[in-house]
Computed example of a mutant assay.
Amino acid sequence: MEELGLADIEAFIAVARARGFRGAALQGNVSASALSAALRRLESRLGVRLLNRTTRSVTPTEAGQRLLDRLAPLIGDIGGALDSINAYRDSPTGTLRLNVPSIVARHVLPPIATRFLKAHPGITLDVITDDAFVDMLAAGCDAGIRYEERVERDMIAMPIGPRTQRFVAAASPSYLAERGRPAKPQDLVNHACIRHRFPSGVIAAWEFERRGKTVRIRPDGPLLASTIEMEVEAAVAGLGIIHTFEEFLQPQLESGALEPVLEDWCQGFTGPLLYYPSRTHMPAPLRAFVDFIRNEGTQQGDGEVRRTK
């Protein structure tokens, strides 16, 4: 049998885990065509089909799944062996791949990433922005950042970025002049509201809280979108009330383009968490990042907690 290439094997594992060439290409920073060529070479050398491909999905064949089950741990051991060389360097090298939601990618991670990369010039930070609930490891990432209720079970988690955040509701002065200002969350059913759809298709209810009382509202309105830029623009234009992370609206609130409403009902919540599976055999770039975040949070007494439920 012709000698097998490690790169082709890694391409097969990436595509099989991502269940598609496009997803694997995005995670590995390579082209889908390059992955497809690698898989064709591997299947040709082995003389067996490894993946079933359709226009909608890519799934391992029985032979492909068996190969994946045997190879994945071996590839991990090879990566760990190569990564152990980092112990002999003054500063670790390699790639750290993080899966984070858009609010974190835009308003939490940038200053942290800048400080971290300046401290560790040999590390490449690969940030995948995804608002869906994902299996971080199956997506080929070293760690993820999510909010507490979305952190996967049996993961080690630690605070990163702001310790508390909140959602705010806001509308343009022109809208409020025309439609009035809601006095309580229940009033929103009589207002035009700008809603957000998550990648999963879920349209979340709006939650408000005051003195231990929580009110959930499912409002209606002229716009339903999956991009915050469109939603903010619509609110500024006077189309309705928006309800989202305060950070997304901060420039418009400061300029007066939007005015807060229901301020005494603003819901606060715990800030984001960095989470990962274990400190055992941790890749050097991830270890460096965890240590960096821990050191930054030392003054606030932050530490690791294993999520069990």
Rank of each mutant, 00 (worst) to 15 (best):
Y275L: 10
E247M: 03
M155H: 12
E246T: 00
I128S: 09
H120T: 03
L176N: 03
P159W: 09
T129D: 07
L273M: 14
S172R: 07
I203K: 06
V30G: 06
G271C: 09
S102A: 09
R307V: 15
A237G: 08
I128C: 05
R97P: 04
V215G: 01
E231T: 10
L249P: 00
A204K: 04
V261Q: 01
M155C: 13
E304I: 11
A183K: 13
G144S: 13
S91V: 10
S255C: 04
Q299L: 12
F289D: 05
I242L: 05
R146N: 15
T124A: 10
L253H: 00
Q65K: 12
F292V: 09
R115S: 03
E254H: 01
A34N: 09
R195M: 01
G79Y: 10
P283F: 06
A177N: 04
S44E: 10
A157P: 08
A113F: 00
N29W: 14
W265K: 09
A37M: 12
A257W: 02
A170W: 06
R41F: 03
Y276G: 07
P101D: 03
T55S: 11
G271A: 07
R216E: 08
S57M: 11
V215Q: 05
R17H: 09
A32H: 12
Y88V: 12
Q65T: 05
T308Y: 11
C266Q: 14
W206T: 02
C266P: 08
G180I: 09
I203Y: 01
K118V: 13
E207I: 07
A169L: 02
D131Q: 04
G271F: 10
T280E: 12
Y175C: 03
S255L: 07
P251L: 05
I228C: 00
A139H: 14
S84E: 12
Q165A: 02
A139K: 15
R45G: 02
D131N: 15
A237L: 07
T164C: 02
E233M: 02
I13A: 12
A205H: 08
R22M: 11
D130K: 12
R150N: 12
R56G: 06
A237Q: 06
I75S: 07
R45K: 14
I156D: 12
T280M: 11
D126E: 15
V215P: 04
P162Y: 02
G20C: 05
F133V: 13
V261C: 05
D154S: 13
Q65S: 13
I85T: 14
F21W: 06
A32F: 06
I128F: 06
D69G: 03
A14M: 06
A139C: 14
E254C: 01
P285S: 03
D302Q: 11
I112A: 00
V48W: 00
Y147F: 15
T214E: 08
A81G: 05
N295T: 14
N295K: 14
E231M: 10
N29H: 14
I75A: 06
V232T: 04
L137F: 12
A63N: 10
G28A: 15
Y276P: 11
R216F: 05
L109I: 01
P162D: 04
P111Y: 00
S44L: 09
S278R: 13
A81T: 11
